[in-house]
């Protein structure tokens, strides 16, 4: 499901028939099963899935921190399986990585942390320092160069980690749950930074997350991974508007839904509406209720106003009266909203 535009641009990462099985003493875990995925230059690719789906395993296979059991990973056309340890290390320098728990060197200052990859790359002292300071400027921490990580907030630590990951001029940045330990406001600012890095430095970014809102916020493309299998891939707006698989639908439902509330409600007829750039920015739900003359329950609302256009989704529980329910669906359709019937949303 690639658009023409993508097909023409360079493939940065090609994942081909990748499987990973962990063998422990008493069990075998098939963490990944036959994954195929192309990530093109300049994309921000979200890989989303529930806990244990295999996201971390997948991203660790992209720089061979984990060796696949089967299949191949190509980075800029080169098969990682063909590389010896030395070549692998130099390839890893082209691939930055950031983590949920930042993984900074706690005994090194902020500057020392950013210098680390430059020391490994044997960049001479003065030049390395200049580069590190530039990067600290980019992430907005120039004034913290001499401070130690223990004195920083989580968001600041992640910024240091980003500066450090960028020090060796990578072409790719891998982010494994990079915002999962941060509050919503900090998450937003980190995502904005990643988006800026993608645009200004032209770095391809892979974002691993279990949160739909992270994908929505910055990703151009998304892959949904479920039980070690890629369930669905494509452009974010496409997948979001027309999820084809149960895994995708489940993920969309999960984000922000109040499960406790849902189980208490009585009506069975629920719909999901998706706001895209076609949708007009009017109080559409209020107008619908006024025109049909019956209230609805909003079970989930996850919308944003981006440049005067509503983005996001809502889940509505319609009146038990089927006629009125149909009238509402019709009304929403005339407002160019995607309406999807939900079965079993309410138990």
């Amino acid at each position: 499901m690639e658009t023409d535009n993508n097909a023409m641009s360079e493939v940065m990462i090609r994942i081909e028939g990748l499987s990973k099985t962990f063998r422990t003493k008493d069990a075998e875990v098939e963490a990944l099963k036959d994954i195929n995925l192309d990530i093109h230059a300049g994309e921000i690719y979200g890989i989303i899935g529930m806990s244990g789906a295999g996201k971390s395993t997948l991203v660790r296979c992209l720089n061979y921190l984990e060796r696949p059991t089967k299949g191949n990973v190509y980075v800029e056309g080169k098969n990682l399986a063909d590389m010896d340890e030395r070549e692998l290390r130099s390839t890893r320098k082209r691939i930055g990585m950031i983590f949920q728990h930042f993984n900074l060197l706690m005994q090194r200052s902020v500057l020392g942390n950013v210098l680390f990859p430059l020391e490994i790359g044997k960049v001479p002292g003065e030049q390395a320092k200049k580069k590190a300071m530039e990067l600290l400027g980019l992430v907005g921490l120039s004034d913290k160069a001499g401070v130690y990580p223990a004195q920083l907030s989580g968001g600041q630590m992640q910024r240091v980690a980003i500066a450090r990951a960028l020090a060796a001029d990578p072409k790719i940045l891998l982010c494994d749950e990079a915002t999962s330990a941060l509050d919503p406001a900090t998450t937003k600012s980190i995502l904005e930074l990643l988006s800026r890095i993608n645009k200004e430095l032209g770095i391809t970014i892979v974002i691993i997350t279990h949160s739909m809102s992270v994908v929505e916020e910055v990703c151009t493309h998304v892959a949904i991974i479920d039980g070690g299998v890629l369930a669905e891939t494509g452009e974010v707006k496409e997948v979001f508007a027309h999820p084809r698989t149960d895994a995708a639908k489940r993920l969309f439902m999960e984000s922000g839904a109040h499960e406790g509330l849902v189980t208490e409600l009585k009506g069975k007829h629920c719909i999901r509406i998706v706001f895209t750039k076609n949708s007009s920015f009017e109080p559409v739900i209020a107008n619908m209720v006024l025109s049909v003359g019956t209230p609805v329950n909003i079970l989930l609302a996850d919308t944003k106003d981006i440049g005067g256009i509503a983005h996001g989704q809502m889940v509505l529980q319609l009146p038990e009266d089927e006629e009125k329910a149909q009238a509402m669906v019709e009304y929403l359709k005339t407002r160019k909203l995607d309406v999807e019937e939900l079965t079993d949303y309410v138990q």
Binding site: N63, L65, R89, S90, T91, R92, K93, I95, G96, M97, F99, N103, L104, F116, P117, I120, G121, A161, R164, A165, A168, L174
Partner: peptide
């Protein structure tokens, strides 16, 4: 792990 990812 972070150090490894940086090619150490």
């Amino acid at each position: 792990e972070a150090a490894k990812s940086m090619g150490a």
